[in-house]
Design a protein around this nucleic acid. Structure first.
Lengths: 242, 242
DNA sequence: ACCTGAACACCGTTCAAGT
DNA sequence: ACCTGAACACCGTTCAAGT
């Protein structure tokens, strides 16, 4: 018997890890099934045993990024005040500081992996791991005293800033590619349990919306909202002479 | 002689037109040299006679979008006040209204061609046609009384909103792929003539910048600027109970 | 259970050749 | 001047086959 070098056996995690490293090193367009196989000393076709194909791989990468953001949020040191984060300040008392920390955490991950926004934009559906981030952000705002309506708009504004893209959020049916409306309902219920704040927001916004021209999530409204928020802010800065 | 159907001869414009229609109909990923050839009744290789390759095609598409935005800005009817646009209001007097019109015009084009932001994000360099749009926006702000510094930050904020992406703007050397620094200087000068406000902004910002850690265009600063603008605006809305 | 080889239907691009 | 055919080096994916 020839003594062969026994590589560590392949696994979903090992493939994702390698894909992440490859994307960091050479960009997302270098992440190719064949190239990834090379990197792992394996034929491209072997990857299909561990992952459901290229789209599955990319979704896995998104989940990895979302996980890193979650980790950063947890372990973030308040960059401004400089005090330790175990003070009595809670989300209720200072939602702005919490939100700021969340956004900066997300941004840190995106800066570390500059292909992140592009990857996000390429996914047809918002992966669940990203919905979890939205949920946390919305929870922060609602507990801080913002209405669901305002929270919804803010979600668009901050999301498009942090992720570098703006698209219709939270249309679970489209996301799952369901055809059967019953299946969509069942799924919605399951999702709603995991994402109570987002579910409440959908309920409120759908109720308020009397003219569902572009769907309940009329992003033209969100766009103008953010635009005016920025223009008003700029005018204020102009008056103080920045 | 068999009577052949003589198709209209190919041209850069006809190819771009067809590419735009194809992207609208089936998405950007359907825009393929071979597919585009089919659409035009021609072999894929023929396209290379009229365009310098796929990247050239995509750059051409960006220019087309930029042109549409320019047209929309020119022909926009003020959507809010409802009055005609031939009033005495000039940029100097109401920079916010002008800026609003510009952003909404750009957005209308992006909504018409939803693959626009993705296409923009895919380009390694910001095409000149897009710089022209930035120039007009910056000019509006500076003439309206904003400092170049504030205008710079606003360009990032509005650009990332409208185009759905955030990246380092205005690094002409990288954009042109130059290696020779003399060539870069010459090009800079040529560009500066066409884009006086952007050129002035670069001059001001470079002078002010004493710690060029991340290049003069430190987008972390821009990010936090926009973030705080939004957070402050949200807090104000919260207090008035939206 | 895990991986491979051959095959299929696609890409962008080159280059010599046709008219 | 304008277009084509053949060829090259790539894609993702399937599926039967190996160990």
């Amino acid at each position: 018997m020839t003594a062969r070098i026994k590589r560590a056996p392949l696994s979903r995690d090992r493939v994702l890890e390698s894909a992440l490293a490859l994307a960091d090193a050479e960009g997302l367009q270098a992440v190719t099934m064949r190239r990834l196989g090379d990197e792992l000393g394996v034929e491209a076709m072997s990857l299909y045993y561990h992952l459901p194909g290229k789209d599955g791989l990319l979704d896995g990468l998104v989940d990895t990024l979302a996980g890193q953001i979650e980790y950063e949020i947890e372990h973030a040191v308040a960059s401004r005040a400089g005090g330790n984060s175990d003070t009595a300040l809670t989300a209720e008392q200072d939602w702005r500081a919490v939100l700021r920390r969340r956004c900066l955490a997300a941004r840190r991950v995106m800066v570390r992996h500059p292909w992140g926004p592009g990857l996000l934009a390429s996914r047809k559906a918002v992966p669940f791991s990203v919905y979890l981030l939205f949920e946390g952000t919305l929870a922060t705002m609602v507990r801080g005293g913002l209405s669901y309506h305002l929270g919804h708009q803010a979600l668009h504004a901050l999301g498009s800033m942090v992720l570098g893209f703006a698209q219709e959020i939270f249309s679970p049916a489209q996301a799952a590619g369901d055809v059967d409306p019953d299946a969509a309902d069942a799924e919605f219920e399951a999702v709603a349990t995991a994402l109570p704040y987002l579910a409440a927001m959908v309920a409120v916004e759908m109720h308020d919306n009397d003219d569902p021209v572009l769907g309940w999530c009329d992003s033209q409204t969100e766009f103008e909202f953010t635009l005016d928020l920025l223009l008003d802010g700029l005018e204020r800065k102009r008056l103080t002479g920045s």
